[in-house]
Structures are given as structure tokens and as C-alpha cells.
Design a protein around this nucleic acid. Structure first.
Lengths: 338, 338
DNA sequence: CTGTTAGCGCATTCAC
DNA sequence: GTGAATGCGCTAACAG
């Protein structure tokens, strides 16, 4: 390992001068700088970021905190795409990202503050935590720069990045209404997620704006799981034959509804239109293919990181970023009756 | 931020004693230790790992180096599942993981050594790099503990974790042969991946062991892409009507073959049996559902990390770990003719 | 058992 | 322009 001291010894200058030359200070003789830079290059000198951060207090590291990063969550490439987006931007900015999972941190009885101070994290991006998660509360209250994915809360050191779920859900509902659907059901996820609320609220508003009545009985709960959505919709469709369209808070649940429809010999989209949310790869392969609302998780990660670094550098003019979703129409939507 | 110095000041002991008490040395008076531990708890003291690593030379950090972590790779949840496996085990061991992408590192002209020494990484797990990638070569030659995923190379500081691809591919081929297939084609991926070679080799051996001749003309190249596999197999199936089974080096390519078969009005599995590799989620949703070889990427990540930490601690008895794959039979395989 | 001393690699005063 | 001195938070000899 080559250190500043080595470079100092070899070039004959002091550690101080070497440090300044390498960090681009302009009070260094050009010749001196060239000599030092050449030596650094030759020896493949790399600054020790840990040592740097010890004195500068800037670790050039951020954390990405997600809820249980277990086997199952791997199915959900939303998190992974966000991760990719973060990774891309973070590296561009000369930072590095550490992956943190709440489950394992809790297991180790760490507080949010500890997670952060252990590694001197400059900021944290949070995704997928339940509303009532203590880490989330700590993060919001604390003074560590934080960016939340899909949780619309902001303050001095907290920002968020999300998509225009409100508009896109309303758009989907109104689209169904325009096709002639009068009884549009909603398959909601569990109540621990902010997005469930937002989407449900938007569903209701969409109905109202389309001149349709909101009927609480047309709401099912599938917990963002295919199997649960399948079972819930099986019963539901049997007892609510007037329903001709189903809007689902996630594609995974839409798959469950699709399965139930098939089992009940309902033709999709002739007897039942279905719209999902997420645009997962599978939606292009089902039969019929699934209409859905497409998010851009990669962008969420990338822009979220951008925002986080701005908050860290105190250079941000805003505390939130909204990414546009896209209503993707495929084969699972049509007029009622065909 | 609470430091050792703070604890020393408050408890009246020296920094050294506080440090020793906290690190569980047994040459500390029990009473003293209790006082110190109590103070640490009360003030929520958290050791600064960066400072620790500066002196101990152990950063408690490993890197996960993957090839281009771009938008597209997100489709491939193999990487993500490996990542989840790493994350789980790494945290258990008190380590943290940093995500590194070759594309961005190259862009910054960093050598492998620099990537490692910048952050004092204790070890690295590598996945998805092409055979000829310079980072891979550096890693293997270098003295930094390294674990390769699916690249069977080992030496003093390098180990690998992979699945029994050899056996499982042979098993699949022999299964097809037992069903009565005599002309079994192979859809290979690009040649930059070790796994392509291994699977191809195993395919040939499987044929031989089943008493079938190896015909180089029955090999196609789909580059691990659906579209390319689709086009390659379209031509191929037209000009090779005697082929009744297709083994594909990845499920994604199997999807391409399935699409081509449908376009050619070939019934799967009646006219053409298909077996893929990976057991991606999609294989359960296609029609017909796809037979495939299931890997356990989560296990790969987890066991790989385990191995890496052993190499780091110099406690490993072996340098490689093999995880068992599973031949999963679904609807896309049958006897020729039905 | 405990404290003093030294130093990890680096950036930053402050003199010269 | 340059260097000596200081300290970031911590561990590791070495004395006592």
C-alpha cells in the first residue's frame, strides 16, 4: 500500500505538500506538482478514503436501507432497479453505497443513529419500510440527510422521490370509465405501505371525477401477494357479478385476479378488464398480456441519489422529485362485453 | 458523536481501558467494565469503524463486483438474488458490503488494486465478469481474498462458488434421450462466459453418455438474449425438422425458442421439447410452462460470502463450494410426438 | 489491572 | 511555496 508518506519520501517533499498537490490546491509550484503527480501515478497511489474521512468527516459513503432483503424480495425487481439507479449515480459522484437491511440491523439491536455513525454515512436512502417502522421515524426526525422512496415526507434534512401515482391511477380509472365500465373494483395491498393509501385514494378520486360512485364494498385486500389476491378475488367476483373491471395496486396481485378470472371462466378482457401496477416483466408474457402502470424504478434510484447528494451538500432547491409514470395498455383491457 | 475519549472523560478511566473494556479483553476489572459498558450504553456509543480499520487494517467491508449494473441487468434477478444472499450472511458476520460495478470503475480508470485499497476492502466477490475482463485477471493474480461466482478458478487467495452445472445439464440431456429424443439441439450463450463453455461441454457429454452422436450443426447461439435466440432458432428449426428437443443455456433464450416454435406452428412439447436454465419466475407463467434447471442464487451468494470470510480469516479448508441444482420438469417436455 | 506512548493515513492550521 | 506540528478515533505495545 502506497501512502502519502511514501510519496513524500520518494519525491523529497513533505507530506503536506504532497497532499496539497494531489488535492489540487493552487499554492503549489507547478513543477513540484508535476513531480508529485508523476510519482503518484507511477506508484499507483490511491488515497485511503477511510483515513480521509476520519479527518474530513466526509466518508463519501451513503447507505441504502431496505426492509427485509430476503429470498422472497428477490422476485420483486423494483428494489433491484432502484439499487441499480443508485449505484450508477453514486459512483459518478465519487461516492460508494452500502446496502443495509432493516431485518438484520434490528437483529443486532442497532438504532438508526448507530447504523449511520458506525460507518460515518453521509446520507441514507430508504425504500420499502412500513409506515410504522421505527427506523423510518428515526430517520425522519434525525438530522442525517435522508431520501425516501415513495414516502412523501419532507423536512430540513429529509426529501423524497416518488412517481405521480396519484395522476396515473386516476388516469387508469378514468380510462376504464371511458370504456364504459361502471363497476370498477380495487385490489389493494396491505395497509403498512404509504403507496397503498395513495393508490386507494386516487382510485376513489378517479371514480368521482368520472362521475361514478365510490362503493367501499368493491375494495379487496391482496397484501401485494398473488395467492392472497387470487383467493380474495375468487370470492369477490362470485358475489359481485356486476363488476367488469379490476384495478390492482400491483401486477403481482393482478396476476392473482387473472388466475381467479380464468378459474371462473371469465374472459379477460371481455368479461373482466384488469389493470395492474408496476409493469413487471411478467405482464408482457401473460395471456392476455396485462395492462399496467409503468414505473421507472431506475430513475427513482438515480434521481433519489441526486437529491440526497444535494441535501448533503446543502445545495438543493427542492426536497422532492416526481417521476412520471406511464399507463401501458395491453390486452387485458377492453369495453365491457368485449 | 460519542467517542472513546468522551467515555474516558465521563468514567474517569483512560481511553485505553475504555477501549479494552468495550472490546471484551479480560484484563479489565469487572467493576470497571460494568461502569464503562453502562456509560457506553447510556450515551449510545458506537465505535467508528473507519477509525478502527485505520489501525487494525480490517475494514469489515467486502465488495461485490459485478459487470455493468445497468438498467437491463435488472431483468436478471440472478444477480439480485446473489446480492441478497451476500447481504444476509455478511451482516451476520458483522461485515458490510459495498456494491461495485465494473463499468463505472473502468470509466474512472481504476485498477482492481485501487478499488480495493481505496476502501481497504478485505475481500471481493465477483459475478458476471467476462472471461477476458482485466479486473478478473487482476483479482485472480492478486493477493486480495476473492470469491468467484460460477467461474471455477482457485488458488491461494481465490475460491469460487458454483452449482453442479455439469451434472445437471447431463441429467437434462439424458432425460430427453430417455424420453426418446434422438436429435437434441443446444442453444448456447455468448462465449465470454465460463458457464457457456461448461454447459456446452456437459451437453456433449450428456449426448455421448446417452449413446447419441454429437452434431456440431445442432448448436445455435442466442447470446443469452430472447430476441437473438428467437431469430436463431427460427431459421434453425426450419432447416432442421428432425430436431425434436432444444436444450437452452438460459430460460431467457428458451423463451425465444418457444416463441419461434409457436410461430412455426410447432406444438410444444408434442413437436418440440424445450428445457431452459435458471428457473426464472417467467417459466412458471408461459404456456406451456417451461421445464428448466433451477439454480439457487441466494445460496450461491450466501455460501460464497461464507467462503470469502473463511479465506480472509485463513480458516478455510477448501477453496470451492458446489451447490446442487435441480431439474424442474414442467409442461414443455414430453416424448417426441406427444 | 490500568495508564502512557505511539502511530494508522490523511488534511489542516500556522509559521517560515 | 513549503514544512512542522496537530489531531481525527481508535488499537496496540509497553510499563508499572
Amino acid at each position: 500500500m502506497v501512502t502519502l508518506k511514501d510519496l513524500a519520501r520518494i519525491t523529497g517533499y513533505s507530506v503536506t505538500t504532497v497532499s496539497r498537490a494531489l488535492n489540487g490546491y493552487d499554492d503549489v509550484n507547478k513543477e513540484t506538482r508535476d513531480i508529485i503527480l508523476a510519482a503518484a501515478e507511477k506508484l499507483e497511489y490511491t488515497p485511503n478514503i477511510n483515513a480521509q474521512s476520519l479527518v474530513t468527516k466526509r466518508s463519501k459513503t451513503i447507505g441504502f436501507l431496505v426492509s427485509d432483503l430476503k429470498r422472497e424480495s428477490a422476485k420483486d425487481n423494483f428494489t433491484f432497479e432502484v439499487l441499480c439507479g443508485i449505484s450508477e449515480f453514486v459512483t459518478e459522484a465519487g461516492y460508494e453505497m452500502i446496502l443495509l437491511s432493516t431485518s438484520s440491523s434490528k437483529q443486532k439491536n442497532k438504532t438508526f443513529r448507530q447504523i449511520v455513525s458506525e460507518r460515518n454515512l453521509e446520507g441514507i436512502i430508504i425504500q420499502g419500510l412500513k409506515k410504522e417502522d421505527p427506523y423510518l421515524q428515526e430517520a425522519i426526525k434525525g438530522s442525517v440527510p435522508t431520501v425516501l422512496v415513495d414516502i412523501p415526507i419532507e423536512n430540513e434534512t429529509t426529501g423524497y422521490v416518488t412517481s405521480n401515482q396519484h395522476d396515473s391511477v386516476k388516469k387508469a380509472i378514468k380510462y376504464l370509465a371511458r370504456l364504459g365500465h361502471r363497476n370498477i373494483a380495487y385490489m389493494n395491498g396491505h395497509k403498512h405501505a404509504y403507496v397503498s393509501e395513495i393508490r386507494y385514494q386516487s382510485y376513489k378520486e378517479g371514480l368521482s371525477e368520472a362521475g361514478l360512485e365510490v362503493d367501499e364494498n368493491l375494495v379487496c385486500y391482496g397484501d401485494y401477494e398473488e395467492e392472497k389476491a387470487y383467493r380474495a378475488s375468487l370470492d369477490f367476483l362470485l358475489s359481485n357479478p356486476e363488476v367488469t373491471a379490476f384495478f390492482c395496486a400491483s401486477d403481482i396481485m393482478a396476476l392473482g385476479v387473472l388466475k381467479a378470472a380464468k378459474e371462473l371462466k371469465l374472459d379477460v378482457p371481455k368479461d373482466l378488464s384488469i389493470i395492474g401496477f408496476d409493469n413487471i416483466l411478467l405482464t408482457q408474457y401473460t395471456s392476455p398480456t396485462l395492462s399496467t402502470i409503468g414505473q421507472k424504478p431506475f430513475e427513482l434510484g438515480k434521481r433519489g441519489t441526486e437529491l440526497l447528494l444535494e441535501i448533503i451538500q446543502n445545495s438543493s432547491t427542492q426536497r422532492h422529485i416526481i417521476i412520471q409514470n406511464e399507463l401501458i395498455l395491453r390486452e387485458s383491457t377492453a369495453q365491457p362485453g368485449g
